[in-house]
Structure formats: C-alpha cells, structure tokens
Design a binder for these strands. Structure first.
Length: 571
RNA sequence: GAUUCCGUAGCUCAGCUGGUAGAGCAAUACACUUUUAAUGUAUGGGCCCUGGGUUCGAAUCCCAGCGGGAUCACCA
C-alpha cells in the first residue's frame, strides 16, 4: 500500500491540505521559521507542579475536546503529555474570536505542532494542566497519525500494532507508542553506560575501517562493493577484530569500538544484515581477568539501564549481578549428556554425537562435533548469565591455545537465556601459529566448511610479527544484549530501522481511451513492431502520435530503433 | 529455504455455507465555559494487496504472485 502519490490522497489528507491553505489565506504561516522559546517540558512541570507558574512549551497536539467556549487538548513533547485548557475569551480577549473559533477549533488537526504560553493550574477533576493564554502553530501535520486511545484504567484501544507498518514508519510508531521510544532510550543508555565503564577504566574509543579489502575477524558472507577510483573490490566489515589488534600492536593499552558489522546472510528474529558489536582489547590481560571484567561491566550496564541488576525476559528473570557461574565446555557436556569429551578421538566423538541424535556428517572435525553437541544439548539450558570456557581449538582460529591443554583454547562465551551474548579470548599473538591457523581455515573452507574463513590477511600477520603483547579481547552483541535488557524477543524491536524488503509503489496512472487501446495490445505482446502496433490499434495518425507519446512519457512503453526498424517494448 | 497464519476506511477490527461493504475511534457540520476513551445529533469516507480462474454473480471459493508475522532450518 502506498500513499506517496498525490493522486491517492485520502479524504482526511485532503481536508488537512485545505486547512493548510485556509491558514495561509489568513496570514498564518503553517511552517514558520522563527525559533519558539520553549522553557518547559510536559512531565517536568507536571511532576514539580507550581500553581500559577508561567510556562512555555511546544509539541504535538494529540487530542482535542471541544466544549463550546472552552476546550481541552493534550500536548505531547519529548518528555510526555500534559493537558491544555483553552478558554475562548482568554485566547481572544477582543471582539475577534477567529483564533479560537476558526484556527484552534477548526484548522488545527491532531498531530500539529503548536507552542503554548500560559500558567499552571489544576482542573476541577484534579488534572494538572496548562491554562493557555497564547498559542502558535509551529508545524502543520498533513497526514493523520495512527492514534490509539487510552481509557481511564490506562488500557490502550486500537493501538498501532501492525509490525510491518510500525517498522516501515518508525517515525509514526515512535510518536504514538511511548513504550517503543522507551526501548530506544534504554538502548542509548546502554551504550553510554558501557562507554563510561571503559573510559573510567582508562581505555580508548577508536574507529577502524568499515570498508575493508579483506573481510576478516569472523567467518561470514560479506557485502561486496567496489571502489571506482582505485578500481578494486571492497567489502563491508563483518568484524573489526583484526584492526583493533593492530592498534594493540601499535602500543595502545586498551582500545574499544562499537562496530556496525554487515553480514550477507539470512534474516530472522535475531539476525539483521547490519548489527552492532562492541569489541574491546586490553593488553597484558588474559581471559580469566576478562571474565571478571565482563561480569562487572554487565552488572553496571544493567543497573544503569533498568535501575536494577535484574531484568525480565519472557518468563525468565535474569540477574546480571556479578559473579557469574563458570563452566568448562567439557564439564557442561558431562552435565547434560553424561559424556566426557576429554581425550576422545574424532571417531569416538562422531559416534557419541550420532548416538545423541545429532545430525552429523564426515566433513565435521573434532571441534565442530563438540560444538554441535554443546549447541544441541547444553547451550539452551543456561538461563542465568554463565561463562562457558575452554572451547576446542578448531573452532577458534584467533584464540590462544589453552595453557594446560593444546586441544583447547583460552576462550569463553557468556550465555544468557540459552544464547551467546559475549565472546572473549586470550588473544593469539604467536604470528607463526596464527599463520598456520589461517591456512587451516582455508583448507577447511576448501573442504566445504562454509563456516571457515577463506581469506588470509597478510598485513595482520605482519603486524603480529612485530609483536603483540599478551592481550585479552571481548566482543558483545549489543543488539542481543539490549533485547535482554528490554524484554524484546525480536531484534527488529531494538533497531530503529530494521531491514525490510523495499516497498513497491504501484503508481496508479490514468490512461486515455486511446492510450488504453495501445497499452492493452502491447501488454499482451510485450514487444512488437511499431507499424504493426499502429495498424492494430486502428487510430488516426494524430491520435496515434499523441497516445504513443503519452505512454512513452509515463514510462509504460519504450520505442527502440533496431536495424532501421522501430520496435515498441513494454517497460 | 520449508511450513503456517495474515492482508477490508486514517487506525483497530467484523463481514457465516458466494448476492451491490459494516462497527468503534479518527474526520466533517452543529450544540455545549473545567472535560479527560468528554457528550449529543447529523454527514462523508473503500482498486476489500495484485493478477488470473470458477460462477449469472467473488471481499468471500481455487491458483499464482507481492508484502508481513510466527515456527523450523541456516548463522564460530
């Protein structure tokens, strides 16, 4: 559906345009340029009520209750809503009552931005309100908002709920659904809290390239683009890890970045093609230190966002209060399956997984098999924040080998509600080992493992050769974290503008009768010789000329000259 | 990608086994000087997602498409 075309204005849209014109005729500019001297905000003056206090505020008029010579309206600004009281003889003290009778009562529509000056008072019924002495139209709204109504018990009626329209028209969603705005305020609070925590610890926020010639740091299908001047392919980053590590090589102690990453993969309730990860790298630390840092960080963030370390997600109450339980992957698999992966061969793991009813195939190595068992049997059980540690080496090409066991890595993931929200390593800084791991990934990719990385970033290896201090790194899926902190099971609810299929605008075009005749023929044939079409249409030379030009102009057909013959094609 | 549900007025939704389209809110007009889902009276507003098919007749039944939701699969 679309309302983009001027041909299809609804009745209400036409009425609003007429009001707009009337206002102009009365000398009222519906889109004035001058600033409006706002001094107050709706909820602030409601919370700190002072009888008779002069106020000046601005916002959208969201409801109007006319009672003849007096009226009530509601003003919604960025802070919330407040009731306005309009009295005819105070708005219009003289003989001329136009401002009240015409402008306020007739020509203003719900959704219009107005500015009001007046004083605070309480109505008979006890509602704190602004007694308006003067109002100004600040901006006219030409399209009716999908406005719900709220009753005395606070129940919302006819709420604007259609997810498609809410996501496509987030601006309208934000105006009429205050709880939606709340989600995004919390989202920003989360980012602020995290920044503050890192900055207080002395770490530095940095920016690294979004356009990369080698998309490294993760295994995912990248978006490709092209740089014209250099005439080279470029990729949108899938991760920023390798660039942050280069900065650690360069001598920064701690660097972090909120990284918009892009992955050209499927979309669903928890995946959007562009999403935000936070990555931080801190030198001279290991993953044990990072676990302690992470739990303090998340407790801090939860408190800043929700005022409490506890957060509700669906049927669960998640407690982000540190410390979190730590379980090795080996122990976790023992806990939930009774099977001990320690020291087992690939064949034994293969058979064990098969015995658990897990779909296995021959391309799977040890690491992949263990990961499948964990993903299938264990992962979903961790509701409260839990660190799962010591992942198999094969799955972690950027992570340092475990100090006690060469088959494992010093890696942890933080599980919340059965999903990964953070991932951290003692970072691999041995350039020779790193090169071998990359080469192993390329072999796996060639074998058909589409999760393995296919590119080797030789510049990154060069930087490691100069020497990277022992470093621990942490990555957090910001979208997923804010989903948990705002009780939203869908990523679309925590992104202002989630990816959608583009809207199709079927433009309705009025064709003349003659144009229709031609169009009907060409629509069947798709493409035909111009003279044959002219004959079939049976129009006079002049009628033909006007009609075919009309169709070409409306971009419905195209006339092309091929080998001295004129061909008409359907567009 | 698979399965399934949905698409009707600005919004939220009815519309039965096919018979010329309905409500509430919103809108327009009138009345009303402290209402608050204000109220009362009257009025207007629809490519019923698109395209085919069946039928004397389709919002309704069938097929295809488009868009969206949910579940599953995939996603270090």
């Amino acid at each position: 559906m679309n309302n983009m075309s001027a041909f299809e204005l609804s009745e209400q849209e036409i009425q609003r345009r007429e009001s707009l014109n009337k206002l102009r005729e009365m000398g009222i500019n519906p889109y004035p340029a001058d600033l409006y001297p706002v001094t107050d905000y709706a909820t602030v003056i409601k919370d700190k009520f002072e009888e008779g206090k002069q106020v000046c505020l601005a916002g959208r008029m969201m409801s109007q209750r006319d009672m003849g010579k007096a009226s009530f309206a509601e003003l919604q600004d960025s802070s919330g809503r407040i009731q306005l009281y309009f009295n005819r003889d105070e708005i219009c003290p003289g003989e001329d009552k136009t401002m009240y009778n015409q402008v306020f009562k007739k020509l203003l529509d719900l959704g219009d931005f107005i500015g009001v000056k007046g004083y605070m008072f309480t109505t008979k019924v006890g509602e704190t309100s602004v007694h308006v002495q003067e109002f100004t139209l600040l901006s006219k709204s030409l399209k009716p908002l999908p406005l719900p109504k709220t009753d005395a018990e606070g129940r919302i009626h006819d709420a604007f709920t259609d997810p498609e329209m809410r996501y496509r028209q987030r601006y309208a969603d934000l105006v009429v659904n205050p709880h939606v705005k709340e989600i995004f305020i919390k989202r920003t609070k989360l980012f602020t809290a995290m920044r503050q925590f890192f900055n207080d610890a002395g770490y530095m926020e940095v920016e690294t390239p979004v356009l990369q010639s080698i998309p490294g740091g993760a295994a995912a299908r990248p978006f490709m683009t092209h740089h014209n001047a250099l005439d080279i392919p470029l990729y949108m980053r899938i991760a920023n890890e390798l660039y942050l590590k280069r900065l650690i090589v360069g001598g920064f102690d701690g660097v972090y970045e909120f990284s918009k990453n892009f992955r050209n993969e499927g979309m669903d309730r928890t995946h959007n093609p562009e999403f935000t990860a936070m990555e931080i790298y801190i030198s001279y630390k290991d993953y044990n230190w990072m676990m302690e840092f992470t739990e303090r960080l998340l407790e801090h963030c939860a408190v800043e966002v929700n005022g409490s370390p506890e957060s509700t997600f669906g049927e669960h109450t998640i407690n982000f209060k540190a410390p979190y339980k730590r379980v090795t992957m080996r122990q976790s698999i023992i806990d939930f399956t009774g099977f001990d992966i320690g020291g087992k061969s690939e064949e034994e793991l293969f058979n064990a997984a098969k015995g658990m009813g897990i779909a296995v195939d021959n391309t799977m190595g040890k690491g992949k098999l263990i990961d499948e068992i964990f993903g299938e049997k264990c992962e979903g059980n961790y509701i409260q924040p839990t660190f799962i540690t010591d992942y198999p080496k094969e799955m972690s090409p950027l992570c340092k080998e475990h100090r006690d066991n060469p088959e494992l890595t010093e890696r942890f993931e933080l599980m919340v509600c059965g999903k990964e929200v953070a991932n951290a390593y003692s970072e691999l800084n041995d350039p020779i080992d790193q090169r071998e791991r990359f080469e192993e990934q390329v072999r796996l990719a060639e074998k058909g493992d589409d999760e393995a990385g296919q590119f080797i970033d030789y510049d990154f290896l060069r930087s490691l050769e100069y020497g990277m201090p022992p470093t621990s790194g942490l990555g957090i899926g910001m979208d997923r974290l804010i989903m948990y902190l705002t009780n939203n099971p869908s990523i679309q609810e925590v992104l202002f503008f989630p990816q959608m299929r583009p809207e199709v605008h079927t433009v309705k075009i009025e064709l003349s009768d003659n144009e229709k005749v031609i169009f009907d023929i060409i629509q069947k044939e798709k493409s035909m010789d111009l003279n044959a079409l002219k004959m079939q249409a049976g129009l006079s030379g002049k009628q033909w000329d006007v009609s075919i030009k009309g169709l070409t102009k409306q971009n419905l057909v195209k006339v092309a000259k091929i080998n001295e013959e004129l061909i008409v094609d359907l567009v």
